[in-house]
Design a protein around this nucleic acid. Structure first.
Length: 803
DNA sequence: TCCATTTGACCTAT
DNA sequence: ATAGGTCAAATGGA
């Protein structure tokens, strides 16, 4: 560091990315001109020397994101002209020193992803602060016990920040201190912030939502003055395994986002919030039968998960209701603004829409992704084919009842080709799929057709797909078995490589939200038909991430996809690389590279009732490893391929926590040994969690995992959870894709000739389907299925896993 | 005494 | 050097 800055003490901007510096030297030379200092992503950076900030008097921007610093030296008080202080994802940072109050010119203070326990009251001195983002950790509960709840977010602190334009407070979902009283106090503080335009809050109960909606300043609801918001209503345990957590994270960064969990009831009190939302993430609504129960006319992005009563999204009758309401648009368009729709784990979903729902319904939809909907039968219904004018991509995965993308009905429809903008079709794990589109001509502009594990699809017809489709990607076994169409498209067939990269590839290919973000922008205006702006490049698109645009009006001008300001974007990276990078010995951009997508678990909640929080299983969010996600990934990838039963067990049972095996024992009366694991943080944090894993004698494809004790280790680095989880997913895949199904079957399972799981139904015997169905019915993999054992010290829950 | 569980030294792969 | 599995021996509850 010394030499680096020493050599460049005239620099006004210094980036130190990915260099290996575990400790900055205590003495740093004077850098009188340094205005911007970027030290992101050095996990190894743990300590800043006490006097570190004394010599950089004109520093305006300081970015220490993704470092492992544990504290800030008091010398931060010397940064009297600092305007931006970014500490994102500094997961070991638990305290902000009171000296922060001396940083008088601070405008942006970003603590998202840190584990701080409380806000020092000195924050209130930062009168110029315009953007404040904090995330308070579960440790705040301990802090409360020691100091009292009023010290976590001291009263009258936020209300002093009168210049505040953005306030974001994330809290650990487990936090107990985040309750009505605290929130009401914060809301009260909001009333005196005249410029507040962006607000991100967790609202644990519906009552608090109501309270928030009723907040008024000069008789104007605070809510109506917001340009952007993110509200997380209710709570749920985190997705048990690796179900596209990256997607979830990114989704929450979309403009006007509401995440609503564990909802219940018809007349939903949160409807107003949802009405104003552009992005809705609905998870585990226990009673909703159709999405159109909410006013979703303005919705642009929608992510639905585990709403087990939902059978369809929109119903014919809604249209007539809507007409009666005489909306301003005067059009009968349900979901007429929707551009992105992803659905996961919907137990009863049968179809997207029922009956004729108006010619503009779903007409803006650009990406449709359907994952693990066991009852889904219809996707594009004949009479609605004309609606999907702007659909560019469709992904269907693990929907065993889907026979074809198109369902013909008795009603007549105009002649094709339909789906004029469809460019990519991805079909994965659809054992029932026998035809692409039931003979209907679709997708005249198709670029890529991806088929994976759809072994009943043995017929590709030029009636359905254009002759000039550019790429058809699939497994060689499937292509070889194809009865028709091989000749037509042989030149464009691309075989999946079985080289360990396959699952990463598939994960990328099905990362619908990522694809969406990469699409060019669109103009949406009620009066103009949707146009794709062909001239806007990816960079333009991402540039928009940094713009605040007032979206509150009904009349929406050019409305670019808006993502949070600090979403890492490609242009950010490019920007960085074009600047002076003083030291860069590693070109990884772990944070930004392609996200792996886990697609192999199926966490249907038990239908009917929300869980009782107290008796709920102890499953916790996947934990992180100390290495960076990227590092881990590379590490695992490098592991020699060794397809053994043992390895599959280990990989498959990776539940996101880091376990250390400490023993194995033959158990009387069991064919297979029992393995003992303890949480890896036992020594470091005294974590008491343990688990035992044993293959079932009765059904060798089932592993019984019994958990003992709660994890008490700190859950740092939320962001890496997903990466870790997806990592485990991808390694699981890696093992599988390294062999043919047959090889695997013989290796993995001695007795049964099948390997089954929710995602890969590789084998073809009837047994496979039986298992699969059983899996769906019993929700074997979902934590809520785990049975609670009576008595103290007994297992907290057991889990049956099938491989 | 039996046998499940845990310990800790040791080994191996990265 | 470290993480993490292996294995024999120790521990402890019924």
């Amino acid at each position: 560091m010394e030499s680096l800055i020493g050599k460049n003490s005239d620099a006004d901007e210094v980036h130190l990315n990915n260099s290996i510096i575990s400790r900055l030297t205590p003495e740093i030379p004077l850098c009188p001109k340094l205005a911007k200092l970027f030290l992101q992503e050095k996990n190894s950076l743990t300590t800043l020397p006490p006097s570190f900030f004394e010599h950089i008097p004109v520093l305006k921007v300081l970015d220490l994101s993704h470092t492992s610093i544990q504290s800030l030296p008091p010398s931060i008080s010397k940064l009297c002209v600092l305007e931006e202080f970014i500490l994102r994802e500094c997961s070991l940072l638990m305290e902000i020193p009171p000296e922060i109050g001396a940083v008088k010119n601070l405008k942006v203070f970003d603590l998202e992803g840190t584990e701080i326990m409380y806000l020092p009251k000195e924050i209130g001195k930062l009168e110029t602060l315009e953007r404040l983002r904090v995330s308070l950790s579960a440790y705040a509960d301990d802090y409360k016990d020691r100091n009292g709840i009023e010290y976590i977010i001291p009263r009258m602190t936020i209300s002093k920040l009168t210049k505040l334009k953005e306030l974001s407070i994330s809290v650990d979902p487990e936090a107990k201190w985040w309750e009505v009283e605290v929130l009401e106090a914060i809301m009260h503080d909001l009333l005196v912030l005249p410029d507040l335009k962006t607000l991100k809050l967790c609202l644990p109960t519906t009552k608090l939502v109501q309270h928030f909606l009723s907040l008024e300043r000069y008789q104007v609801p605070i809510f109506s003055g917001l340009w952007n918001f993110r509200f997380i209503i209710g709570h749920c345990e985190q997705l048990p395994f690796s179900v596209q957590l990256d997607m979830e994270e990114n989704f929450l960064k979309l403009e006007k986002c509401v995440k609503y969990m564990n909802g219940e009831g018809w007349m939903d009190e949160n409807a107003e919030l949802i009405r104003q939302a552009r992005a809705l993430y609905l998870r585990r609504h226990w009673t909703i039968e159709k999405l159109s129960l909410f006013d979703v006319t303005r919705l642009k992005y929608c992510l639905l998960m585990e709403c087990n009563e939902m059978q369809t999204l929109v119903h014919q009758e809604d249209i007539y209701e809507d007409r009666n309401r005489a909306t301003n648009h005067g059009e009968d368009a349900m979901l007429g603004s929707l551009q992105f729709l992803a659905i996961h784990f919907m137990k009863k979903l049968q179809r997207i829409s029922k009956g004729p729902i108006g010619r503009n319904s779903l007409s803006c939809l650009r990406i449709l992704a359907l994952h693990t909907c066991p009852e889904l039968t219809s996707i594009f219904v004949g009479c609605l084919l004309d609606n999907f004018k702007n659909l560019t991509e469709v992904i269907v995965e693990d929907c065993p009842k889907v026979k074809s993308l198109v369902t013909l009905e008795a009603t007549s429809w105009s002649k094709g080709p339909f789906l004029p903008n469809l460019k990519r079709v991805s079909l994965l794990d659809l054992p029932g799929l026998v035809s692409i589109s039931s003979g209907v001509c679709i997708a005249p502009q198709l670029d890529t057709l991806l088929v994976f594990n759809c072994m009943s699809l043995d017929y590709l017809s030029i009636m359905e797909l254009p002759r000039d489709t550019k790429v058809i990607k699939g497994e060689i076994e499937w292509w070889d078995a194809l009865k028709y169409g091989k000749l037509t498209w042989n030149s464009v067939f691309v075989q999946f490589k079985r080289d360990g990269g396959l699952m990463d590839q598939l994960a990328e290919d099905t990362n619908s939200l990522q694809h969406f973000l990469e699409l060019p922008m669109v103009l949406t205006h009620p009066d103009s038909s949707l146009q794709v702006d062909q001239n806007s490049s990816r960079d333009d698109h991402l540039w928009c991430n940094y713009q605040y645009i007032d979206l509150t009006e009904d009349w929406e001008q050019v409305e670019p996809l808006q993502i949070d300001h600090n979403v890492p974007s490609f242009d950010e990276i490019q920007d960085m690389s074009s600047r002076k990078i003083l030291n860069s010995d590693d070109d990884t951009q772990s944070q930004y590279d392609g996200t792996a997508v886990g697609m192999w678990e199926s966490p249907f909640p038990v239908s009917g009732k929300p869980h009782n929080e107290d008796t709920e299983c102890d499953f916790e969010a996947p934990n992180h490893k100390d290495a960076s996600p990227k590092k881990r990934r590379v590490y695992k990838r490098r592991k020699k391929l060794e397809v053994t039963t043992k390895m599959v067990i280990e990989e498959r049972l990776d539940d996101g926590h880091i376990w250390r095996k400490y023993g194995q024992k033959e158990i009387l009366g069991s064919k297979y040994p029992r393995q003992y694991y303890r949480c890896n943080f036992k020594l470091l944090h005294g974590c008491k969690a343990q688990k035992q894993v044993q293959r079932s004698t009765e059904n060798p494809s089932v592993f019984v995992v019994t958990y003992f004790g709660k994890h008490t280790c700190p859950r740092t680095l939320h962001t890496s959870c997903s990466s870790l989880a997806t990592e485990s997913a991808s390694t699981t895949f890696r093992i599988r894709d390294s062999s043919t199904p047959t090889e695997l079957a013989s290796t993995i399972s001695e007795s049964a000739s099948t390997i089954t799981d929710s995602h890969f139904q590789l084998a073809t015997s009837p047994q496979t389907l039986d298992y699969t169905n059983k899996f769906f019915q019993e929700e074997v993999l979902h934590p809520s299925f785990w049975t609670l054992e009576p008595g103290e010290g007994l297992p907290l829950n057991s889990l049956h896993l099938q491989i």
